[in-house]
Simulated assay, not measured.
Amino acid sequence: MVVLPIRFERSPRLHAMLSEEPHPVGTRVVVQGKRGPEVATVRGEAREPLAQERYGAVLRAAAPEDLSRWEELHRAGEDLKWLLRARARGRNLPVKVVAVEFTLDESLVTVSYSADERIELSSLIGEVRAHTRARVNFAAVGPREQAQMIGTLGACGRENCSSTHLQDFAPVSIRMARDQQLPLNPEKLSGPCGRLLCCLQFEHTQYLELLKDLPRKNARVCHEGSGACGKVTKLHPLSGTVDVATDQGLLQNVPPAELRRMTEAEVRALPEGRGSGRPGKGPRPASSE
């Protein structure tokens, strides 16, 4: 027995499946998933199973009749999805039907939907049962899962990360944008799902390392060479420099090695209105906001 990483159609997540024989990457296979038999694609090389892991099962390589039946069920699911959308709209139900998926043996149909509030779906269940004898399962999905299943384009012009390669949805906070010195514009920081961009997490650890040696924004500092003092107004982690607005009205871009952080006593001795910044080093800990 070997373990194969396989991928279902509507998600990039890889699932480990036990198989009696290895199958080449790209092979369509029939697997026994949680919902029942489905068609999936092999996305990696075979490996040895581990005792502590739990696996699904690869039943066989998909035969032409399996693929033909799978395509037929996919079309039936798409037709049913648009019918349910029309019925929901006609009944003023505040729900969006995202996807309708059958198992290969047509024993179960899963209707994925999104809604902002708890709603009664009994009328839609009746519509589904009028078109299939399969058991009906309604599954609520969040905004990120919806974008993952539908597939959208991100601000970068490429298909969104959630439907191409992300294996899990890690928490993303506005602190990540602040640490990367990005403008806090909701339109720029939100993905097609309306939530904070997943890619904000990709480089956050590196930015935290770069920020360790930079003074905090608004900290009071003095230039070692000229002796001019002022307030840090902007950090440039990638270039390793900061902008300092001096008390003489100048704006200087300098490396932190040339700066001296003012002591608390020096800050308190400043004229009123100039000592609001506080000395310090590095970013504040990331919050969960």
Rank of each mutant, 00 (worst) to 15 (best):
A147N: 01
K212M: 10
R10P: 00
N92W: 10
H165W: 15
D213R: 15
D179S: 03
V172N: 05
S19V: 01
S239L: 13
I174A: 07
Y55F: 11
K217I: 14
E145Q: 05
P192E: 12
Y113G: 00
H204Q: 08
F8D: 01
P285Y: 10
Q180V: 02
T263M: 03
F8A: 00
L250Y: 15
V128M: 01
A139N: 13
E106A: 14
M1E: 12
V109R: 01
H223T: 09
A16S: 14
V141D: 05
R278G: 11
R85K: 14
F138S: 02
S112V: 00
G227Q: 05
Q167M: 11
H236F: 15
Q146I: 03
R129W: 06
E187P: 01
K234P: 01
L93A: 02
A46Y: 02
R220V: 11
V136T: 05
P22H: 04
T132C: 11
R118L: 01
S107D: 11
C161Y: 03
A63G: 09
G280V: 01
E187C: 12
G191V: 06
S19H: 06
Y207V: 03
V136M: 04
V232I: 09
P171D: 10
F169C: 00
L14Y: 10
I125Y: 10
K212W: 07
R75P: 07
E72T: 13
Q167E: 11
L80N: 00
L196E: 07
G249H: 07
H23A: 08
G56M: 01
L182D: 04
L59F: 05
P171W: 05
L59W: 08
G151F: 07
L270G: 10
S107M: 04
T152S: 15
A147R: 07
Q52T: 14
R47N: 03
C161V: 09
A245Y: 10
R274Q: 12
A130P: 02
E266N: 04
R69K: 12
N92E: 14
E127V: 09
E258D: 15
Q248V: 13
V221L: 08
G77L: 07
R278F: 12
V141S: 01
T233L: 10
M149C: 09
F169K: 04
Q146V: 11
N185Y: 06
P285R: 12
R47I: 06
R284W: 15
A269I: 02
R220L: 13
I174F: 10
G240E: 04
A228T: 02
K188I: 09
R54Y: 10
G194H: 07
L166E: 00
G151V: 02
S239A: 15
E203F: 10
L208F: 06
A62L: 01
N218Y: 13
M262E: 03
A115N: 05
G249W: 09
T233Q: 12
A219E: 07
K96C: 04
S122L: 14
Q52V: 14
I125H: 11
R87K: 10
E289P: 06
V232F: 05
P192M: 12
M1D: 12
A99I: 08
H23Y: 14
M149S: 00
E53S: 08
V31N: 04
M176V: 06
V100W: 03
S11H: 03
T152N: 13
R216K: 15
G154C: 02
E78I: 13
L93G: 00
L250F: 15
K96E: 14
G26I: 07
G90Y: 05
E72I: 07
A16I: 00
Q52S: 15
G44L: 02
A245W: 08
R118P: 04
A88P: 05
E48W: 11
